[in-house]
Amino acid sequence: MLQVLPADAAKLIEQGGVIAYPTEAVYGLGCDPDNDAAIEQLLQIKQRPWQKGLILVAGDYLQLLPYIDESQLTADQLAFVHSKWPGPFTFIMPIKPKLSALLSGTFDSIAVRVTAHSDVKALCAATNKPIVSTSANLSGQAPALSLHEVKQQFEGVIAGVVIGELGKQLSPSTIIDAKSGKIIRQG
């Protein structure tokens, strides 16, 4: 399996590849959120139904603006979101019209996060956009916590894996609905 730095991983993403990368707590699988063929490939690799939707992870909030409709949120709701970022908090936010259903699934919202993880920030900076982020595992299996586990499940089916270390989080990010403030999943 090709092991690459974030800048080289960005090239693989731009070419439509699916990559694995370390995040705050687990390895993630990612691709270009604007490439439906790449998203379909990621869903097929993970054996995940498109209806569930996916997460976008960004290195900077501005990278999320083409995908989310912040006009549907109040100033207080946005202030709460911004108070948690960057960090291990994923927010369910309203989507822009015509966003690919492969990203949002059957919902009128999408899960988004602004990361504090240096390798993911570098990856997003190199692609100049957020990337799709879903845990590196087959649906229903435990997320990969090591390069060895990524190789076991995805050798030969993904374009490469970013060299780096997992963050210090012990569990995947907390997921919060930006409109209601309700915690969907405790991290």
Rank of each mutant, 00 (worst) to 15 (best):
M1N: 00
L5M: 13
P6K: 03
P6E: 02
A7N: 09
A7M: 08
A7E: 14
D8L: 07
D8G: 01
D8K: 15
A9N: 04
A10G: 08
K11T: 13
K11G: 13
L12K: 11
L12R: 05
L12S: 05
I13Y: 11
G16S: 10
G17E: 02
V18E: 11
E24R: 03
L29W: 06
G30V: 07
G30I: 00
G30R: 08
C31S: 10
C31K: 01
P33V: 14
N35L: 05
N35Y: 12
N35C: 14
A37F: 09
I39W: 08
L42W: 06
L43W: 11
Q44W: 13
Q44E: 15
Q47R: 14
Q47L: 11
P49W: 00
W50N: 02
K52I: 11
K52S: 08
L54S: 10
I55R: 08
I55Q: 09
L56A: 00
L56F: 09
V57S: 08
D60N: 14
Y61S: 05
Q63I: 06
Q63S: 04
Q63T: 06
L64K: 13
L65I: 03
I68C: 14
I68V: 15
I68L: 11
D69T: 03
D69I: 04
T74M: 04
T74F: 01
T74P: 02
A75I: 13
A75T: 14
D76R: 07
Q77R: 00
Q77I: 06
L78M: 13
A79T: 13
F80C: 01
H82E: 04
S83W: 02
K84H: 15
P86F: 07
G87T: 04
G87S: 03
T90G: 01
M93N: 05
M93E: 13
M93C: 14
P94Q: 07
I95V: 15
K96W: 04
K96N: 08
P97F: 01
P97T: 06
K98I: 03
K98E: 15
S100G: 04
S100P: 08
L103I: 13
L103K: 00
T106N: 14
F107T: 05
R113V: 11
T115K: 07
T115D: 04
H117Y: 10
D119L: 08
A122R: 04
A122K: 08
A125P: 02
T127D: 11
I131T: 12
S133W: 07
T134C: 10
G140L: 12
Q141D: 13
A142W: 01
A144V: 08
A144G: 05
L145Q: 14
S146C: 00
L147N: 07
H148R: 14
E149V: 07
Q152W: 02
E155L: 09
G156C: 13
G156V: 13
V157G: 06
V157W: 03
A159E: 09
G160R: 11
V161F: 00
I163D: 12
G164C: 12
K168D: 15
Q169V: 06
S171G: 01
S173D: 01
I175C: 01
I175L: 05
I175W: 00
I176A: 02
A178S: 10
K179M: 03
K182W: 00
I183C: 02
